[in-house]
């Protein structure tokens, strides 16, 4: 098999070129010798910031407010609500304010609960029978986000938790529900929290889709959503 040959050739070319010559520039690098630093688990030399969960370092309120500040800075909308009843009302307001007609919600139970009472007011696309054309015709996708990152105003969506990958991308408006309990302080915290092994796709979303490709003029909503609205649910 040719790819197998290529694999052998490339790996042996790498080993050949890494062989110390003259005064050894690098350390003694073997193929899989046991003397050199073991498989990739240790950090590289130099200080590394430890991952801190948001709880316990900064005050929770500070983390939430820096998250909402960053959201505004990257051009995302944010509404803070307390409890599901308030969330349902706010969601209805967002949908009608945007002039939405066709709405598609993810399979997250919270999303289903909040959208159920709105069935009379909006046309709801069914996720299970959603064709590509149906999806392209939706005005709004409603999903949850598994994590928020305060440092950058980022939403984190894990494929293992919810079918949100296309709903958060294709419709011009994305509404994301997020609990304030799930806001991490830093990018490193976010990376430490995601359930990487379970999800074949993890998506970080920071504001709406954007481009500056024509004369460096900012345009939002070029391929993805023009509007990202975060519905932030405070602890009760």
């Amino acid at each position: 098999m040719r790819s197998e040959d290529a694999r052998r050739e490339i790996l042996s070319a790498i080993r050949e070129n890494l062989k110390p010559r003259g005064i050894a520039p690098g350390s003694a690098v073997g193929s899989t010798g046991s003397a050199d630093p073991g498989p990739a688990t240790e950090g590289p030399q130099g200080p590394r910031k430890s991952f801190r969960a948001a709880r316990g370092s900064k005050e929770r309120g500070d983390v939430v407010s820096s998250f909402t500040e960053r959201l505004a800075a990257v051009g995302a909308q944010c509404t803070v609500v307390r409890g599901e009843a308030e969330a349902a009302g706010a969601l209805a307001g967002i949908l009608s304010g945007a002039g939405a007609r066709r709405v598609v919600g993810s399979d997250a139970p919270l999303v289903q609960r909040l959208l159920r009472p709105l069935r009379d007011r909006f046309e709801m696309a069914a996720l299970d029978r959603l064709s590509r054309d149906d999806l392209f015709a939706c005005d709004v996708g409603v999903t949850t986000a598994q994590w928020g990152i305060a440092e950058t105003g980022t939403l984190v969506l894990e494929s293992a938790r919810e079918r949100s990958r296309l709903l958060s991308l294709v419709p011009p408006i994305h509404v994301a529900l997020l609990s304030t309990r799930c806001i991490c302080e830093s990018l490193g915290d976010g990376l430490a929290h995601v359930r990487q092994a379970d999800s074949h796709a993890i998506t970080f979303i920071t504001g709406p889709s954007r481009t500056s490709d024509i004369e460096l003029t900012l345009v939002v909503g070029v391929h993805g959503p023009q509007t990202v609205h975060v519905l932030l649910l405070e602890d009760l």
Binding site: R70, V74, E151, T152, T154, S159, A160, R163, R165, L166, L187, V194, Q196, A197, S199, H200, A201, I202, T203, F204, I205, T206, G207, P208, S209, R210, S212, G224
Partner: peptide, 24 residues
């Protein structure tokens, strides 16, 4: 690159979808 704290999207992809109903 662009002077952004983070670009709008990062896709972290690990292998293929796990269930037929999954997206991707």
């Amino acid at each position: 690159g662009t002077g952004q704290a983070l670009t709008a999207y990062q896709s972290l992809l690990t292998g293929t979808k796990r269930h037929p109903a999954d997206e991707g």
